[in-house]
Write a protein that binds this DNA or RNA. Structure first.
Lengths: 107, 107
DNA sequence: GGCACATTCAACCATTTGGTTGACGATTAA
DNA sequence: TTAATCGTCAACCAAATGGTTGAATGTGCC
């Protein structure tokens, strides 16, 4: 049951990585610049970026010797849909909802 | 930097746990009943429930020898707020909602 | 060419996760 | 009181996380 959803949520489950994503809202950044505000090694930040890349939350493109990190916010979409749909489901009367589903999916 | 947000996102980063949350949408459940559809030991499910409890996504109350699990969906609120800050959450699109339903409720 | 810079790789370490099995304490029911 | 049920605990295992350091690889600059 390893889906993208697994990786997206897991990637978001770390404050350092959420902070990186927030930084990338402003602009694309080189790995070294991403690492600058953190009190950890460059290699550690590089690993965080790999996890974000694997989850599809960022992309990395090498130009010259610099690797640029770019936010890919649509990767969050599936997670948003899950979490938001969850909220909507919760508000529903489940029995009525099942009837609705049967009607809707039976053709 | 371990926040509730860390725990909520990390807890959601596992398909088994998301499925448990979906099951609990319908009604409160005993641990044994939660475990029933899964092909893993009761002890394993018990650990998943502990992780969900630590994240605040469910609560557990023991009555007699049965421990009841109850969804606490407001724990997701902080996560929704965070994720919404990326401006990706437009009005929920119905197609995506249906996709979600088919994924979550098909089996 | 040679040096400095940007980034990753490799090896290591401690902790957490996701699973197992078997024993155990608590509770209910016969 | 004895037996069955509910759920966790303890010990173990393999794999992943989050970090370190030091060496290696590319690339740009003088």
């Amino acid at each position: 049951m390893t889906s993208t959803l697994d990786q997206v949520f897991a990637a978001l489950g770390d404050g350092t990585r959420r902070q990186i994503l927030t930084m990338l809202l402003e602009d694309d950044m080189a790995v070294t610049d991403v690492a600058e505000p953190f009190e950890m090694s460059l290699a550690a930040v590089s690993k965080h970026l790999a996890i974000l890349t694997r989850a599809g939350l960022i992309s990395q493109e090498k130009r010259g010797r610099v690797k640029w990190c770019k936010l890919e916010p649509q990767a969050m979409r599936e997670a948003v849909v899950w979490i938001e749909s969850f909220g909507q489901l919760e508000a529903l009367n489940f029995d009525a909802f099942e009837e609705f589903l049967e009607r809707e999916l039976s053709d």
